[in-house]
Each structure stands twice: as structure tokens, then as C-alpha cells.
Design a binder for these strands. Structure first.
Lengths: 194, 194
DNA sequence: CTCGAAGTAAACCGATCGGTATACATGGAC
DNA sequence: GTCCATGTATACCGATCGGTTTACTTCGAG
């Protein structure tokens, strides 16, 4: 994802793990580099040797989160029956390893990162990728032009994800999936290309 | 809104105005009390005399934002034709005074405020109020049980509001309104109580 | 005339911020 | 056998954090 520095060493990976936990739990601005280094059992110098700046570490955190999430999504999508777009809602409801009870890490990040922060580009790319994936699945499973429906589902998903972060339960995801299902029920399969 | 301290003096009001601007623009965690006091042309002591803590000032900022937003919403709703639920989308698209180009202040706040922060209760109450208002308008205009439709519209609205903050344009609100309209078109008026 | 509320100005508290510097250890590759 | 990457440990930089304190105005109400 973009040009973020990937961790190559052990220390770099431990730093990334510690940073991910702290950033997600307490917010990016609220977490200091010293705390990250301590949590990783590493010195600040090592952190700066590996990532160069807090901003770069933040961008890497988000890029790695996207990578892990995307892999989990593909697994689910591959195993799902048509219409597979519903599997995206299921993936947001619970994806194994990643913590989610505080809501979407990208939504949380977007609220804290200004327009010129390198992490913001990762967030924008992530959201665009999810949206494109929804549309791809719709077109492959239903045929025809599904841009409007994809947009509807993407917004629904985004709203439910926020709501989950607000009340701490995945209920909104379940409700959103129900709404999505009824939208898909109303969309006839279109095998002919217009 | 809840038990937040309302500003009574001139200095208190100027502090709130300055805090609102800075919190919304740069994030709550990233803004310090010294900066707020300076922007308001006031000393830190006055800030603490008026609000007692940064947390209380944050809660007041959110409560005031809700008050202003709610007043603007009611004005629009009162002037709107049925189905008036669409007016809520229009209100999110552009409401006169309040800045919105960075997205919803409550969504941004929710990403930064932990569960025990007094401001979080204001956010939860705000979102619940909007959702209840949508349902009220639906029931009054369409009749019947509209809980499911209200939930669908509320999630759609939430998602579009986040998207707006992400790309800086109100386009997502327009698209969400279109989706909402087609949902409402599919919902028959039900004058009889089941 | 006085008293208290509301304010300014400025110093102070300990802690933390992001980031840099210097000095030293380890261990595998050439 | 040496050299370089990777690391630890620690001190330091100036700035800022949320919050408190002391001393001094200013001004309207009683």
C-alpha cells in the first residue's frame, strides 16, 4: 500500500505490533513514541532508525492493518455464496485477529489525521478499495451496472461500522446486513449487458 | 444536553467559540488549553474558572454544537414537504453557520474520546436524538412501524457523513439522499394501525 | 463606600511531546 | 580479523501538556 516503510527486522515488527495496539486503543495523537518504544521493549533510537518519524510509523500501521484486513476479506469472499457482497458485511462484523470493538481503525484515524498526513492517503486508498471490491462482487454476481447499488451498500457499511464503534456491539453490522440483503433481493440478476 | 456547564459570561462564550473552532479543525487531543485561552483573548485561569477542566469544556463544546445543529434541523424539517425524513439529509448536506467540510464533529469526537469521557455521553445522546427524529418523521408521514426503515436511513446518513469528512465534498450526502428517496418511494403510506 | 465577582498577567508544577546525540555491545559476512 | 548493520542505554533538546497559584485590576450592586 503506497510507499510506507515495511518492517524488515525483529525490532521493527515488534514496534509495529505495539504501535498498532496503542494507536487503535488510545488514538494516534494521544500515544507518544516513547510509550510505543517501551511497549515494544525497544529504545526510541531504534524506532527512529526503523521508521524515521512518527508519521511514517502511523502510515505503516494503517497500511499493515489494511493488508491484514484485506487478506481476511478475500478468504471470506472466496468461501461465500452469491451474492458475495454480503460477505463484506460479515467480514466487518467479526474478523478473527484484528480488534474491532472500538470501531474501524481507519475511521478513527481519519478523524485525527489532517489532509497532509501520509497516513491519510492510506485511509483513502483503503476505503476506495473496499468500495471497488463491493462493486466488483455485485457486477460479477448480478451483472449490469451496479455503481449505484455499490455506493448504497458502501455507505450503509460505513455507517454501521461507525455505530459499532459508538456502542461497542456489532448489532449495527447485523442490521446493516439485513438492509443490504433486502436491497439485493430487490435487485434482479441481469445477465445481458445493456 | 445533560449536565454540561453552560457559559454565562462574555469570556466563557468567547472561550467556547474559540474552542469549537480549534477542536473541530485540529482535533480535541491535539488542541491545548493554552491555545484555546490565547485564541479567546483570555487567560488560562479564566478558562479554568469558567469550565473547571478541559474535559468539561469539550463536553460543553459538543453539547452546544448539538443545540445549534438541532435548531437548524427543526427549521428545515418544519419547512419540508413529506416525507420530511429527507430534510435530515439536506440538513447534513449544508447547515448555514456550522463548519462541516471536515465531517461530523460528533464522529470526529467519538474517535478521540474514551468511554469514560463526559463528552462521549453527549455524542451518544446526539446520535440517538437524530435517529429518533428520523423515526418520528417517518411514522408521522407514512404511518405504521418504521423502525427498520429508520435504522436503514440512519446508517446511510452516518456513512455519508463520514465519507464527506474523508473526501471533503458533500457528494456522498447527495448520493445518500438519492438512495433514501428510492427507499421511501418503495415504502407505501400506511394509514391503518396494524 | 465597600465588597465580591470576573478578569488580567505571569510564574510555576511535574510530566510528556517528537526528535537527536553520544557511546557502547553484539554478531554474522566478507 | 575486521567491519557494518542492528541494537541498547541514556542523556539531552526546546516546546508543550493539563492544571494551579499568587498578586493585582476593574467595576457594578448593595
Amino acid at each position: 500500500m503506497l510507499d510506507v516503510p515495511a518492517p524488515t527486522t525483529d525490532a521493527g515488527r515488534r514496534l509495529l505490533t505495539a504501535a498498532a495496539e496503542l494507536f487503535y486503543r488510545h488514538g494516534i495523537t494521544a500515544v507518544g513514541v516513547a510509550g510505543i518504544a517501551t511497549a515494544a521493549g525497544v529504545t526510541k533510537k531504534t524506532l527512529y532508525d526503523c521508521y524515521g518519524s512518527k508519521s511514517a510509523l502511523v502510515a505503516t500501521y494503517l497500511a499493515e492493518r489494511h493488508r491484514a484486513w484485506w487478506a481476511a476479506l478475500q478468504e471470506r469472499v472466496d468461501a461465500a455464496p452469491a451474492p458475495r457482497a454480503l460477505a463484506v458485511f460479515a467480514a466487518y462484523r467479526d474478523h478473527g485477529e484484528l480488534p474491532l470493538e472500538l470501531g474501524c481503525a481507519f475511521q478513527r484515524g481519519a478523524a485525527e489525521l489532517a489532509g497532509d498526513h501520509p497516513g491519510r492517503a492510506v485511509i483513502v486508498a483503503h476505503k476506495a478499495a473496499v468500495r471497488a471490491e463491493i462493486e466488483r462482487l455485485l457486477v460479477e454476481d448480478l451483472g449490469g451496472d451496479r455503481a449505484g447499488l455499490a455506493d448504497h451498500l458502501a455507505l450503509l457499511l460505513e455507517g454501521a461500522t461507525f455505530q459499532r464503534g459508538l456502542d461497542g456491539t456489532p448489532d449495527a453490522l447485523d442490521r446493516a446486513a439485513t438492509h443490504a440483503r433486502s436491497l439485493l433481493d430487490g435487485a434482479r440478476v441481469d445477465t445481458a449487458t445493456p
